[in-house]
Write a protein that binds this DNA or RNA. Structure first.
Lengths: 202, 202
DNA sequence: CTTTTTGAACTGACCAGTCAGTGCAAAAAT
DNA sequence: ATTTTTGCACTGACTGGTCAGTTCAAAAAG
């Protein structure tokens, strides 16, 4: 049972990995279950032994991926706080963590962005929950920064959080897709400059 | 002849409008040609009379939409220049124009973002061209700002342009999807603050 | 002995694209 | 003035193929 959970775990992981790249490339509907099974090196029957349906496989994939992202953002924020860093430093660390995540799981990010704002989809409610968890991490840091006077009281927390997340997401996807020659540090510096307001002026 | 060209034009426009919302909601593959035809109030054959294929309809839709966006960004930049405004003001005006566009065509924006970073798709090359046109407008303003000393020489133009576009896109889509009660001015102020570096400090 | 996986065959719904035919308005012929 | 022709725009039933999901007996893993 202990060992069987492991075997099952391994198969599920292989299926996640196969599904995430295929769906990122082609979208959910034009990715077939046969393709996923083949890429994972597993029989089609196994997919249905492990997941109720193609949709359920996808929903669990979303939960799994956003869980990793949220944990990584939270860890970056916590480390900065422990070191006694400022909130801007925490945001900076979170940008870096976000970039690291996207670098490690570009397909997942792509797929997440592609699905996030769609309405009328089976997994809409799953996405809503999962998005809220991720955005909440950023919002909390912003709120703390305003409370302790480090950040301007004028900022609109939910909108600024969304804008920051968007800035990182889009810059990173663009980097992956169109500007491969850049290093993660290049991207991080560009975003850091924007965050710290050093674009205009000097 | 005059009237027949108009009739075709009207039908195509109806098909664009039907396709854009359906594809934004459901994605390209799970939107059927029958649905598009029904929503447009025409027969399925009419779709194929007007477009070679479902894919071609979609590609022309992309060209059409991004054309509108690019024109609107360019107009904002030009107006600011004519008034003798600064480059930061021009960027600010472009943010506003971008938000206006997204407000007017939310479905199009959604669909554009969902498709932009997908690889291995039939319309990849169309998207590449069309994206470049839009980003180039922002890059030009940034470049001019650096040249005339108004913007920091340290900024990385392509990455900063991508980040700015991303900030606007994601904040606006989030506004449309999750924060409907906000006005366009709220969103604009939040983004303007970020652009002008007034988030940290005062 | 139980859990998990295999693989192949099958079903039934669904869908992109086709095509023979309709309607109609303007041009040409009478 | 009336009839005939032309061709554009559109129609919708039909086809050939695809794919999610099922079934199951047998094998492998533990």
């Amino acid at each position: 049972m202990e060992s069987s959970r492991t075997r099952r775990e391994v198969t599920r992981q292989k299926l996640y990995e196969a599904a995430v790249t295929l769906i990122a490339e082609q979208g959910f509907s034009s990715t077939t279950v046969d393709e996923i099974a083949e890429r994972a090196g597993v029989a089609k029957g196994t997919v249905y032994y492990n997941f109720k349906s193609k949709t359920e496989l996808f929903e669990e994939l979303l939960r799994h991926g956003v869980g990793l992202l949220t944990a990584s953002l939270q860890a970056a924020a916590d480390e900065t706080a422990e070191r006694g860093g400022t909130k801007v430093e925490a945001l900076d660390a979170m940008i870096r963590a976000g970039l690291g995540f996207i670098d490690r799981y570009p397909a997942f990010t792509q797929l997440y962005v592609a699905e996030l704002w769609r309405t009328n989809r089976a997994w809409q409610s799953t996405l809503l929950v999962v998005r809220q968890e991720a955005v909440a991490v950023v919002e909390t840091v912003l709120r703390d920064g305003v409370t302790n006077g480090e950040l301007s009281k004028e900022i609109d927390i939910p909108l600024t959080a969304a804008a920051l997340v968007g800035m990182v997401l889009v810059a990173a996807l663009d980097w992956q897709a169109f500007q491969r020659e850049r290093t993660i540090d290049d991207v991080h510096s560009a975003l850091s400059l924007l965050l710290r307001g050093r674009v205009s002026g000097h």
